[in-house]
Simulated assay, not measured.
Amino acid sequence: MRVHVVHAHPVETSFNRALFNAIVEELAAKGHEVDALNLYDEQFDAVLSRDERLNYHDVPANLTPEIKPYVDRLRAADAIVFVHPVWNYGYPAILKGYFDRVFVPGVAFVMEGGGDRGRLVPNLRNIKKAAFVTTYGGNRFRTMIMGDPPRRIARRWGWATFRTLPRYLALYDMNNCTPDQLNGFIQAVRSEIGKF
């Protein structure tokens, strides 16, 4: 299976980068073809331009030369894994920008009836499995009080986009974890991702 692993953390020595590396290693060890995308290393431009917004519903003109390589990688995948921290109860800006610029009409979905009206129909039928692997600075209780927006969005948006319920593997209160707890989470992620 071809697995696209998308990472969004700027620090190469971070725990989040260690998770990304472990996932890539685990998938490769299980015989999967891995397409690893580190958004920061690739200097992905997260800003949706004026022209991109104006042409957003104009398929295929919305598939600009800047985003087409990312779309090609997405369309070639059988599975996808997003590895990212949660900051301010949301996705890092670079990952949100990736979603905004790459998951456009004609790619992630089509609008029955055309244009910007009609019924949204998922279009990434090639993706059979999806997962989000993430870390939180906040503890689970505080995050629940806030409604845990990243978890809710990942599961609902993931279902609507891929028609498969994504796995959501989260480490809460990361800054207060012991080295054994951090290592335990990496091993749990390896075990879960190894089932892809």
Rank of each mutant, 00 (worst) to 15 (best):
N88S: 15
F99Y: 04
G113Y: 03
G106R: 14
A108L: 02
P105F: 00
G90S: 13
R117T: 08
A93S: 13
F103C: 05
R119T: 15
Y91T: 13
P122V: 04
A108K: 05
P122H: 04
R117A: 01
G97L: 11
M111I: 08
G114Y: 07
V104Q: 07
M111Y: 03
E112I: 08
P92Q: 08
D116I: 10
G90E: 07
F99E: 03
R119A: 05
V121W: 00
Y91G: 02
G90R: 14
G115T: 14
F103K: 10
Y98W: 15
A93V: 13
G114V: 10
L95Y: 14
F103Y: 15
G115V: 14
V110P: 12
F103Q: 09
F99V: 13
N88R: 08
I94L: 01
V102H: 00
G90A: 14
G90C: 10
F99D: 02
P105G: 10
V110A: 08
Y89D: 04
G97R: 13
A108D: 08
G97F: 10
A108F: 00
G114T: 09
Y91F: 15
G114R: 12
Y89Q: 07
G114F: 02
A108T: 05
R119P: 05
Y89H: 14
V102T: 07
P122K: 05
P105E: 06
A93K: 09
D116A: 11
K96I: 01
P122C: 01
D100K: 03
G113T: 07
V107M: 12
G115L: 15
Y91I: 05
G115C: 12
F103L: 13
F99T: 11
V107C: 08
E112Y: 07
D100S: 01
F103R: 11
R101T: 05
F103S: 11
G118N: 12
E112S: 08
A93N: 04
L95T: 10
L120V: 09
V102W: 11
P105C: 14
V104K: 13
V110D: 14
G114I: 02
G118W: 04
D100L: 08
N123E: 12
V104S: 03
F99G: 00
R119G: 08
L120I: 11
N123Q: 10
I94S: 03
P92C: 01
K96Y: 04
I94F: 11
G118Y: 02
G114H: 09
R101I: 00
N88T: 13
G106L: 05
G106S: 02
N88L: 14
F109H: 15
I94P: 09
E112C: 05
L95N: 09
D100Y: 02
A93L: 10
D100M: 04
A108C: 02
Y89E: 04
Y89S: 06
R119M: 12
F103N: 12
R119E: 15
G97H: 06
Y89A: 09
G106H: 00
V107K: 14
Y98Q: 07
M111K: 02
A108S: 12
P122Q: 06
N88V: 05
V121D: 04
F109I: 11
I94H: 00
R101D: 01
L120H: 06
G118Q: 14
R119V: 15
A93W: 01
N123T: 06
I94Q: 07
I94T: 09
P92N: 00
F109C: 12
P92A: 03
G114Q: 08
F99M: 03
F99R: 11
V121F: 00
V121T: 03
